[in-house]
Design a protein around this nucleic acid. Structure first.
Lengths: 163, 163
DNA sequence: CTAGTTCCTCAAGTTAACTTGAACACAAGA
DNA sequence: TCTTGTGTTCAAGTTAACTTGAGGAACTAG
């Protein structure tokens, strides 16, 4: 039932379908990543995308990073630190991994702290008070959420007013 | 310049503006939480919402939980375990806090594990291989993301086919 | 009583990270 | 050659968690 992948490679490079199979990403996602400046395939004379082997690793890194909670923007920024003139080496990848590791460490520490405060604080009377430790804006996780989520004193209007 | 809050309470209950000031939530957010089944204020005969003091704590819990990464749906589910016939006690709140703590513990452990694998794995040759530990679906953080994010073998079509 | 503030509803916009669909071009195999 | 199978673009839909705006109604202060 399963079609043999057949290494669609043609002298020009790897097709999007091939990349899709190897990474597990949908072609639409891979095209989206191109719009987002994460991969830059070249085109055949008829306009089809052709990728390099290094792009598989690039996209794999994206997937892993996302599962760790990083946004496309953060990932793009990190990838920009890779050399553009040559294929990234092991050391190049480890350098950017290091940055993410630090961020991860910080987030783990913060969550641990919040978790420890949760037990003591949730049942206490301070829950509605502004001086509760859980309310300390510094201790709050950065809003890694979705839509317009302008948490206290961080609204666009405030920024516009230049306060 | 700042208006004295004046405890807008009226025999009927607390107004949305008062709740908004105490929690820091925008009135629009509070109304949204009502749609989402998180608070159920009663109405005056002219249709205005009136809240109880316990709702402040309820909403505070929502904010804390969100900062810990829980979704509205999860929070609503947790809140549903609170007694509806009486004002929740300290013990009630601690019970639901306990559930979230467990979840937090698990997430921290998972992130720690991923972080530890990241160093060794990011630079190795396995990044593009399907047997890399970082690719193990079980080890992947649950997609807590936003839009349609049907990660490998979890597409709606698969579910529809009843696989 | 009138002005100003607060509240109401409902529809539509926002962000992120993609997916889905239409309409069409190109490529590969029998 | 003819038919699938892939590939391309572009517009629009999706989810979550809200915000913004329009157009009114009601409460409060002076």
């Amino acid at each position: 039932m399963k079609k043999q992948p057949k290494l669609r490679l043609r002298p020009t490079g790897l097709t999007i379908g091939f990349i899709s199979e190897r990474t597990g990403l949908a072609p639409s996602a891979i095209r989206y990543y191109e719009e987002e400046g994460i991969v830059y395939p070249h085109r055949t004379d008829t306009g089809q995308r052709r990728y390099e082997r290094a792009d598989i690793r690039r996209l794999s890194f994206v997937m892993i990073s996302q599962s760790l909670g990083f946004s496309i923007a953060e990932i793009r920024e990190a990838l920009n630190s890779l050399p553009s003139n040559r294929t990234p080496t092991k050391a190049d990848w480890q350098a950017i991994s290091e940055r993410f590791r630090k961020d991860l460490d910080a987030r783990i520490a913060q969550m641990t702290k919040l978790r420890d405060q949760l037990d003591g604080c949730i049942g206490c009377g301070c829950l509605s008070l502004s001086n509760c430790k859980l309310y300390n804006p510094d201790d709050r996780a950065k809003s890694r959420g979705t839509g317009p989520r302008y948490l206290m004193g961080d609204s666009p209007s405030d920024l516009a007013k230049g306060t």
